[in-house]
Design a protein around this nucleic acid. Sequence first.
DNA 1: CCGCCCTGTTGCCTGTCTTGCAACGGGTCA
DNA 2: TGACCCGTTGCAAGACAGGCAACAGGGCGG
Lengths: 298, 298
Amino acid sequence: MKHLRTLAYVTEIARAGSIRRAAERLSITPSALTRQIQDLEYELGTPIFERLAQGMRLNAAGELFVRHIRDQMADLDRVRSQIADLSGVRRGHVALACSQAFVTQVVPEEVETYRARFPLVGFTVQVRDHAQAVTALATFEADLALILQPPPSADLHPLYSGHQTLRVLMRSDHALAAEAGPVRLRDCLGHALALPDRSLAIRHHIEQALARRGVALQPTVESGSLEFLRNLTLREGVISLQVPSGIPQDPRLHSRPIDGRDLTPMALVLAQLRGRSLSVAAAKFADQLVARLNREGS
Amino acid sequence: MKHLRTLAYVTEIARAGSIRRAAERLSITPSALTRQIQDLEYELGTPIFERLAQGMRLNAAGELFVRHIRDQMADLDRVRSQIADLSGVRRGHVALACSQAFVTQVVPEEVETYRARFPLVGFTVQVRDHAQAVTALATFEADLALILQPPPSADLHPLYSGHQTLRVLMRSDHALAAEAGPVRLRDCLGHALALPDRSLAIRHHIEQALARRGVALQPTVESGSLEFLRNLTLREGVISLQVPSGIPQDPRLHSRPIDGRDLTPMALVLAQLRGRSLSVAAAKFADQLVARLNREGS
DNA sequence: CCGCCCTGTTGCCTGTCTTGCAACGGGTCA
DNA sequence: TGACCCGTTGCAAGACAGGCAACAGGGCGG
């Protein structure tokens, strides 16, 4: 909106780190930018940027001010969403940061369901690990975060929390697929393993459990992409470990839960930033997602 | 600040009830105003005013939007105050709504003390009854409210709550001044009474207590001004009832507490609007006031 | 019923403020 | 030292807010 133009300039300069880079991204000239900033600093009675040879950096006052701008913009979004809601048509936008495990099934299904009811609501879905997800919430890049093993953070306000038991994933014709029921972890270690790499929470969870038993993990293949690992299990006779929410329904794939004695279930939360009030669209989507997670959890 | 100009226009039109009146108060022409509003409504995608023959009135969307504007302005004040605080010099402004009983001693003393330390902080002190005080908080006219017998309201966030025992106020040569210690209420009713009128919480408190005993109150003089009542007790031989905080130190005046069996102490709270974060200046003043009230209460 | 007064709105013009362009001064780095 | 990046500034062109005057429409008393 018009009256926030200058404020948007500030955040862009803070992000870009220099007036010239920001000017380029904003499609205006550096001179226009520098003047806006000078006027603003005059109004505030104090500089909000440090001028360095390499560019501009927010000073303490600037940090406070940028925080204010973000709050303000988020609040405006909320209000616009509420206003749109008055007219009966639900418009708005939902920004979600989620772990990779959920982009396969849960999130696309729920987005589709939601958009079937409210086609005017847009979505932004970003894949983030648990630490990045918290950052995304804090910088208002995301309204909601759906993450595994959330780091303890005072900024997180959980809307749902539950658990997911890890499952061994294999091709339907794999030896382990012959039996049913839970699998002991030691029975997996004998097979060729295709595991998530250390950028993913699943890997940390497994390693912690094994470390307690003094066992080292030697995966045959490791990857930051769960999708790659699934595709590999379809081609080779390797097995993988994934959370149930991320396992697509595919007759060629088979999965069995890991025995509870070997691996504790992983924590799963849907969270928002503490103290922030969501737009109508985001709040409704969160409700829907929580309902789904409750159904699955039971 | 510049970027809030249009938003200030909106609130002024909402307050004035018509574009022309608002234009006059803002010292611009109605045409400039109407255009600003049209642009804003276009940006929002929906009208925020109802056009009536008598003028403009906010619609539901407008109510939401004005609420947002107020929040935004208050938050900007807070941020500016925090920024000023970084430079070591404490600037800012404190707006206080208080019951009449406190303009005699408590508030002027505390303002003086505060301003001795931070001369760059300005004050707005308004006398408001308990209902008006809550309104003042809700409309951001006041940061803090110091009131007797606060109405139960979800919007109030108490920073201090205590009690004040009503005292009988008389000239030092009055018959009741001869004895010391608490006075029974019935001993007062025999003398000529100069009481606060029904616009003040003290009066309601007394009447409720007497109503329970089936006694009707027949004051000789009543007034909405506690100062007038005090001055009258200095001239005539009448007695009055006031809260201790409002009684000035004056050798010609004497006061004795009402017996606890006859009148329960009156509730006293310092409160802010729930969910609002105060400016540094207001928060520090609140701290100081709470310290004073705690000292007095003990 | 009509004129009067109040309301918001619109076309046109003007002054101010923002923006773009080009040039300048000052740092960093090879 | 020269190349390159940075923010900043003078000047001219454009956008935008504001003022003036006139218009359309509803409420109201004569």
